[in-house]
């Protein structure tokens, strides 16, 4: 069976596709350029700007910091967010309605304000170490995603399934891990990826909380752009994309990305 598709639809879909993919192609192209300045299309192909990144110590260091930060804050947010989402859904009737809204509030506050208030409170007043402040800030930043995404998964979960497990002799905590968690796995993976990407790309909170000796990759990129206009930036960006895609690939291999098709 063939279906006729309106030509305008094809053109429109093509334009949207270009709009989405175009910038990525330009960045990748610019990163491969042999010139000493950012340009597209690339003139001459070279990987020299990629090797340049690793020659700049600040890039190496911040890349590691960003990775650690993203993994740690994501893990913390999952650790706090999954039980919170569970409780919010399991006891929805008994809990006041505003409680679930509370977990979304950090999204409503402009990130710059959140960053500044964190600087004022934990970094200055409590004199917390820079990396710890960053972890706290990023955990706060990504926590709403965990609660929302896991809540969405749990909303369709029938809690009598958990009761069935308990009635069959499985203690509540064990039932949570063997019965509830496997059934919201897709939500957990989605939350993980969202959090990781949000954290590793974050500028507005990090810019307040980074300090002497410790910075994140996006902040380093920002600092670099202020001084240089060479393709290093493009190649770092490509590397950042590759890193994110790499993490998603690992997640997909180990846990499966079935949630994308569900």
């Amino acid at each position: 069976m063939t279906r006729s598709v309106h030509p305008a639809l094809i053109v429109l879909a093509g334009l949207v596709f270009i709009f989405l993919v175009g910038p990525l192609i330009i960045v990748v192209g610019a990163a491969l350029s042999n010139t000493t300045y950012l340009t597209f299309p690339p003139q001459g192909l070279s990987l020299r700007w990629f090797s340049k990144i690793f020659e700049i110590e600040a890039f190496r260091r911040t890349m590691v910091t960003s990775l650690q930060l993203a993994l740690l804050s994501t893990a913390l947010a999952l650790l706090v967010g999954i039980p919170a989402a569970y409780a919010l859904n399991r006891f929805r009737i008994q809990l006041p309605g505003w409680l679930s809204t509370l977990f979304v509030l950090p999204v409503l506050v402009p990130e710059l304000v959140l960053g500044f208030s964190l600087l004022r409170s934990i970094a200055v007043d409590l004199d917390a170490p820079i990396f710890l402040s960053l972890v706290i800030g990023h955990t706060l930043l990504v926590l709403p995603y965990v609660v929302r995404v896991i809540s969405a998964s749990l909303a369709s979960f029938d809690f009598s399934i958990e009761e069935a497990a308990i009635s069959l002799g499985s203690p509540p905590l064990k039932s949570f891990f063997t019965i509830v968690l496997p059934n919201v796995r897709s939500g957990v993976i989605a939350a993980f990826i969202l959090c990781f990407i949000t954290s590793i790309n974050d500028v507005s909170i990090s810019i307040f909380l980074t300090g002497p000796g410790i910075s994140t990759l996006p902040i380093q990129i920002l600092a670099h752009v202020e001084q240089f206009f060479d393709p290093t930036i493009a190649s770092v960006s490509v590397l950042l994309m590759a890193l994110t895609v790499g993490v998603m690939a690992i997640v997909e291999r180990t846990l499966g990305l079935t949630f994308l098709t569900k």
Binding site: D158, S160, I161, E163, A164, A165, S167, I179, P182, N183
Partner: peptide
């Protein structure tokens, strides 16, 4: 032993 209205089988 409990039998539920909506079966409550473990889907996975």
């Amino acid at each position: 032993g409990l039998v539920f209205q909506n079966y409550a089988l473990f889907p996975h």
